[in-house]
Amino acid sequence: MTEQAKPQVPALEGWFTMDSDKPHLLGSQCTSCGTYYFPQQKNFCKNPSCDGEEFNEVPLSRTGKLWSFTNASYKPPAPFIADDPFVPYTIAAVELDKEKMVVLGQAVTGVDVSDLKAGMEMELVLETLFEDDESEKLTWKWKPVSV
């Protein structure tokens, strides 16, 4: 096989940096009250005590503590694009310390529910979500720092 490597593109445009070494989720921060948003809020602040309308794009902390976790034993419906046969995957909810925000994502391939424990330090990595004829679509996933 001499197939050329497909280009790697984000599965969701503008949700994270494509830095393969140290990727960050891209959030926004209200310039008035300082609260964070993921996905990015760009028009109006949702803090009921704030009338802010300006936001800076900010990279969110790329590590946090595991809040909870689960897996997907069954193939989700579309728009999920599954391998055939479907391979179950693990899901992590990670609490970012500075932003005080819990962010969901799949856990990196090879990490099982039995490998996880609440409070574990987790870091953000990029992995393929699916591929089509043109490209590999990458997404963020959570990986235990200790692995």
Binding site: L12, S68, T70, Y89
Partner: peptide
């Protein structure tokens, strides 16, 4: 991609995911 419901299904997050996260949290805490 502007619809959070579409986004989470694309990323593999279904309804049982949320209830399972709450349940696991109880086990852990």
């Amino acid at each position: 991609p502007d619809d959070p419901d579409w986004v989470r299904f694309r990323l593999g997050i279904t309804n049982p995911t949320y209830f399972a996260l709450y349940a696991r949290r109880r086990m852990e805490i």
